[in-house]
Amino acid sequence: MKLRFSIPVLFCAFLFCFGSLVAQETTVMVRALAKDAKFIGSSIGGAKIILRNAETREILDQGLTSGSTGNTKLILQTPKKRYDKLTDETTAGFEAKLNIKEPTFVDVEAHAPVNKKQAKVISSTQLWVIPGKDITGEGVVLEIPGFVVDILSPQTHERIKASNGINLKANIIMMCGCPVTEDGVWDANQYEVKAIITSEGSEIKEVSLNPTNKPSTFTANTNLEKGYYTITIYAFDPVTGNTGVDKTNIIIN
Rank of each mutant, 00 (worst) to 15 (best):
T27P: 00
W128E: 13
T69C: 06
I197R: 01
Y83I: 01
I250G: 02
I144R: 07
K2M: 04
A92Y: 09
S216C: 11
N71D: 15
N99Y: 05
Q62F: 13
L76G: 15
Y234D: 05
A162P: 00
G132F: 11
I130P: 05
H157E: 15
I130M: 15
T243I: 05
A112C: 09
I144T: 08
H157I: 12
A47L: 01
A162W: 06
S43Y: 03
F16M: 01
E58V: 14
L3A: 08
G184K: 03
V114M: 11
P179T: 09
F14N: 00
E138N: 06
V239P: 00
N115D: 07
K247S: 12
D246S: 14
S153A: 14
E25R: 14
K120F: 07
L74T: 15
S124A: 12
Y234Q: 09
N99C: 00
D84W: 06
T69Y: 09
L74Q: 10
N213M: 03
C178M: 06
I166Y: 08
M174G: 00
P145A: 07
L64C: 07
V108M: 11
S123M: 06
K35G: 01
A96P: 02
A96I: 04
L60T: 13
F147N: 07
I173R: 04
K35T: 02
S163F: 00
L209G: 06
I75L: 14
C178R: 12
H111C: 02
L209P: 06
E58Q: 14
W186P: 00
I172E: 04
Y83F: 14
K80C: 08
I50Q: 04
P154R: 03
D150Y: 02
Q126A: 08
V180M: 10
V121H: 03
I172V: 10
I7R: 05
G137A: 09
A34N: 03
E138Q: 12
F94W: 11
C17I: 09
D246W: 02
E109H: 13
G63M: 12
Y228F: 10
F218V: 07
G201W: 06
Q24F: 04
N210Q: 11
K161Y: 11
T87H: 02
G93T: 01
Y228G: 10
N249K: 13
T240Y: 13
W128A: 06
S123N: 00
R31G: 15
G165D: 12
A34F: 04
T156S: 11
K2W: 05
A235C: 12
G227H: 01
A23C: 02
N189T: 10
A23H: 02
F105T: 08
I251F: 10
Y234A: 02
A47T: 01
V148Y: 05
T156K: 15
K247I: 15
E203W: 02
I135H: 08
I166P: 11
F18W: 13
R52L: 01
L209V: 05
L51K: 04
A188N: 04
N213Q: 06
K35R: 13
L74E: 09
E89H: 08
V245N: 03
K194F: 05
M29H: 11
L76Q: 14
A34T: 07
E192K: 14
G165I: 12
A112F: 09
Y191R: 01
I122A: 01
T230Y: 05
T104A: 13
E182D: 07
D134H: 13
P103M: 04
K80P: 08
T181I: 15
A235H: 13
V149C: 02
D88R: 01
M29C: 08
P8K: 07
